[in-house]
Design a protein around this nucleic acid. Sequence first.
DNA 1: TATTTAATAGTAAACGTTTACAATAAGGGA
DNA 2: TCCCTTATTGTAAACGTTTACTATTAAATA
Lengths: 333, 333
Amino acid sequence: MTVTIKDIAEKAGVSYATVSRALNYKYGVNSTTRQHILEIASTMNYSPNAIARGLVKKQTYTIGLIIPDITNPFFPEVARGVEDMSEKQGYSIFLCNSNWEKSKENRYVKLLIEKRVDGLILAPSSSIVTAEDRQVYSRLPVVMMSGVQSGCGTGSVVVDNIKGGFIAGKYLIEKGRKKLSFIGGAEDSFSVKERYEGFMQAAECFLSVALSPDLVRFGDYRNKSGYRIMKELLEKKNIPDAVFASNDLLAIGILQAIKDAGLKVPEDIAVVGFDNIAAAGFGEVELTTIEHPKYRMGELAAGMLLDKIDLKPEINENERVVLEPELIIRRTA
Amino acid sequence: MTVTIKDIAEKAGVSYATVSRALNYKYGVNSTTRQHILEIASTMNYSPNAIARGLVKKQTYTIGLIIPDITNPFFPEVARGVEDMSEKQGYSIFLCNSNWEKSKENRYVKLLIEKRVDGLILAPSSSIVTAEDRQVYSRLPVVMMSGVQSGCGTGSVVVDNIKGGFIAGKYLIEKGRKKLSFIGGAEDSFSVKERYEGFMQAAECFLSVALSPDLVRFGDYRNKSGYRIMKELLEKKNIPDAVFASNDLLAIGILQAIKDAGLKVPEDIAVVGFDNIAAAGFGEVELTTIEHPKYRMGELAAGMLLDKIDLKPEINENERVVLEPELIIRRTA
DNA sequence: TATTTAATAGTAAACGTTTACAATAAGGGA
DNA sequence: TCCCTTATTGTAAACGTTTACTATTAAATA
């Protein structure tokens, strides 16, 4: 049905090896026969079969991208960075949402290996890398992104979460805030932990009083969660004068809770987020936050992966690049 | 290097055809030999080669998804719908961002056909479907989404844009607004046109005065564009008491421009958007808008495509499903 | 016991490429 | 004129599966 190299060969009166060579601009085919072959291929509407090619070349020019949820505004930018960089080098990407489920993530890894992707970029749903995981990751080039410990056995690109937390804390304290609160996403998330750690370091360095344990809370990464937690906090007497949220979605929920309580941001309570998602910059929100270089992260991860793929024979040294966070001052702090 | 069906056959002392049958749970292999084979496969860490399988079965269990830009908050939900539905039926998706460029879109279509995707879901960058496009789309199952005219030669799933525009207009007029404005994304976009058309219909039906031509403006779909256009409008004396934006991003920019001018929403100017992106629901924004069933749209598009793929021999009737828009009343109108 | 049938396993071709190697023809140098 | 290169093309194997067809064996039937 679909036209193959053999159909072209027949019509051109040459062997199909010659057709293959002609179509791939290989050295060693007469320029007039090549021309002839190219014309025939074009008029026959030939489309090379990348599957067949992949089988013999053992390379698919395809990489897998597994993220928790493309619907979370952090990930589209990352994905776009990955795609743009990959496309530049001729690679396509399989997009997979693990839905924050480790089991689904594992199934996807397995599937992608079956599909013989040339490499894998993984924004893991959980910070825990098991021995089995390592074993699987050793089967192909892998780079991990965001919220991954070093020594995970793969390449990785992350933002300096500790520094980001530190910057946020330092800024709030310099602005005269004394009663700090930390509201985080999942407590067992590695990046949340690190952001908290950096924040605490700033408090230790620059603040005489310690953080009230009641003012550090965890939930999930969603908007609603920030709202709920902040509301709880406000209903008690122990009200902070600044809160650092482990991500912007949370911070936006927090903003809303504060507004609903009739308090003013930043006068009564300052709020700083993390990630600098697009919505943080919207006029109605104007959230002060920490820039997380999302697009760049995707680009770098893809770049690193493609390097790994190309240098297959080389030692698979597990490079780790750490991106700089940056304070973005807007209205809320 | 990697273990194949032959390696397993050798170790099990059977032919590789038997191994294939065993691994695929085909009828006709003794249950004890099957058990034996499965164990060997497992201990050898066998991963079936989907590329080789795809070559003989002429099916890759892969579909292509081309959207303009995953970074636009409208698309992640669509993509998620597509992915969830596809995954359920065992299909993976290639994600491609056309970046609103027809040429890039075309290149991706070509590439995906080379990769032998079983079908294609396309959120086109432009509403124009050329004869060449049709020719290409005839090579494989295709369904188009969002902003596509009927008779595009493929299946399609869209929202009823005209009705959406109408609902928005009707609501504003019922609220007593008289001086309506329409601010749209790209003027040549089919969906923008339809939303405008519906809005005008409402004006004709329920309003005695006609819309001032000065109050209908076009830009692009971005936040900044809404801000800029609204600012221009406000600088003239001809200030509307309600504006309908062709999408939420635009509306959020408009909100900001109004606020900056010291006017109040909705008291001075009511604003309604379109799409109901997540950010529209944020407490700080609370945009009144028209729900665009994004996730559902992705699901339906994928479902329709997979049906087409399965019923390959059937007549390729180009079904069109039209989703209902819905008014979401929040703070801004 | 002879014959049919069912269950199981093996053989080989096919999917559409790429590529190592062989074959041919033409040109050049001795 | 003969041999050696070089340019061009062809042959065939390989990539890792699936599957139609054939062969073998054992059980069941007459």
